[in-house]
Amino acid sequence: MSALGVVGGVVQPVLIVAGSPLLVGVMRQVRARLEGRAGAGVGQPWRDLRKLLRKERIAPRGTSEVFRFAPLVLVATTLVVAVVVPFVATESALDPVADLFAVVALLALGAVALALAGLDTGTAFGGMGASREMTILALVEPTLLVAIFALSVRVGSTNLGTIVSSTLQDPARVISPVSLLAAVALVVVIVAETGRIPVDNPSTHLELTMVHEAMVLEYAGPDLALVELASAMRLSVFLGLLANLFAPWGIATEATPLAVLIGVLALMVKVGVLGGLLAAAEVFVAKLRLFRVPELLAGSFLLALLAVAASFFLA
């Protein structure tokens, strides 16, 4: 465990926890402006969380520990990912966990916890949300892993630190067809995993169209705060991962205050820009019907396979 790793392991989770509600705020603000509205301000998600922490906890009748622990597990998995993935510093506090497969599996574990909580309530909407979330997860997994495959073949490792460092040393790789195809595939996957339009609409009120929201309809107060925080964190983590896999510049490679500061700023700028772009793009597309989503995911899977083929035949 190096000094840089420890610094990264402390700075990153703090940054992700503090920054991800702001990211959601920025994205809502971008959307509001494009719709001609004034918007509630960037800090609004934080105000929401503060308020939720002051509210009452509710245990719906008939729910078990699964329902109570799911928000904790959801945040914890994302927190571990925030600690280990090289967002600010190239070295990881827990290097043997900073593996792409492990990170993907950890994020999936969070989704599973929430799906079980949705089923645990025994309501029709909870079960419906869980069923849809799991269907999408099952279809996203192949694309995600094959895209990772394409990215890690050129480096010979699935360790995130190694991938990021090697891109830093050889920037030309970023504009290779492998990277571009994999990037497009990953973007689609991230949209699906974080429940954004066109796969899911985070601000829908219509239960029948819900995916993520349907699972959390029973949560209130601090539990809901955890769920909302976790979904914001997942979004930042995915966008940060995307940014640093393809454009790791600015990331700290040594444990000096200046380098870490630059790393923090670079991450904020990159994730902010990606989030803004995502929010702007959402204004232009409508939500897909649930059963059109597999077609979208199949398309991205094809791109990921092409990326692997390219990585072999163009190497």
Binding site: G36, R37, A40, A220
Partner: peptide
């Protein structure tokens, strides 16, 4: 709606009374 934009004052419509104040 866009003209009066109640959301800018921190109010938001939600889907479940559990989420509501």
């Amino acid at each position: 709606g866009p003209v009066h934009d109640g959301e800018r004052y921190g109010a938001r419509l939600v889907a479940s009374p559990r989420h509501a104040d």
